[in-house]
Design a binder for these strands. Structure first.
Lengths: 110, 110
DNA sequence: CTCCTTCATCGTTAATCTACGATAAGCGAT
DNA sequence: ATCGCTTATCGTAGATTAACGATGAAGGAG
């Protein structure tokens, strides 16, 4: 099972809506991480090594980006023997989309 | 008139869709900048000094955040005598929302 | 048990970010 | 011409980020 918020990676302190959105935006504030997220969305589930193959980055760098995505909550990781399978946390992605919608449509209120 | 992309602040090199989204997300990857954007959306137009009053940050720090927002294209600045009036670039905000929608809804395709 | 694969983590370096005070530049008013 | 207001920029310090190679841990295969 995918664990939503492992205590080791996501301290899960309480954030304001603004802080939470900032965290998610920051996680997507690098082209490599957007590419990874896109890849995970099209592949649904993906082994870390497969992502490394696709990206022009060292394995350790990709692992670091994955860690940041995991810490933001946008991505979930599941250990499968020697491999680690990643997938997108749809709930978190929806949360991001909702928050972004609220922000972008704020002008229309009032 | 508000200038869309002053050559001095926005080099306007060609970016891929992923890079462009990353730039916009990075610009919103700090709570202070989200707060500023929100404030500009509710106030429509706003003098820099007014933003400084609202934020718990030094004037120079706010000015720096505004510069980052300007460079991303999300915010436009217009000099009015000794003051500078800021407003949100609705086109860019829509562009961000569209790109985010495409990203978040990618799962539904295929 | 020993290799091999897979991946996270460590250590490092260079770059960037964040925050601040201080300063400079531009403009209006006196 | 000078003063005061407003804002951008400079310089700086500390923290964080991004990239890499190297190492280590965990599990499967022989």
């Amino acid at each position: 099972m995918y664990i939503e918020s492992p205590a080791t990676t996501a301290p899960q302190t309480s954030h304001s809506e603004t802080e939470e959105l900032a965290i998610l935006c920051k996680a997507l504030g690098h082209p490599a991480r957007i590419t990874i997220l896109r890849h995970l969305l099209t592949e649904d589930r993906c082994i870390c090594g497969r992502i490394v193959e696709v990206m022009p980055l060292a394995q350790s760098t990709v692992s670091q980006h994955l860690k940041i995505l995991k810490e933001s909550g946008l991505v979930l990781g599941e250990v499968e023997g020697p491999k680690t399978c990643y997938c997108v946390n749809r709930n978190k992605l929806t949360e991001l989309f909702t928050a972004m919608s609220t922000l972008c449509r704020q002008e229309e209120e009032q």
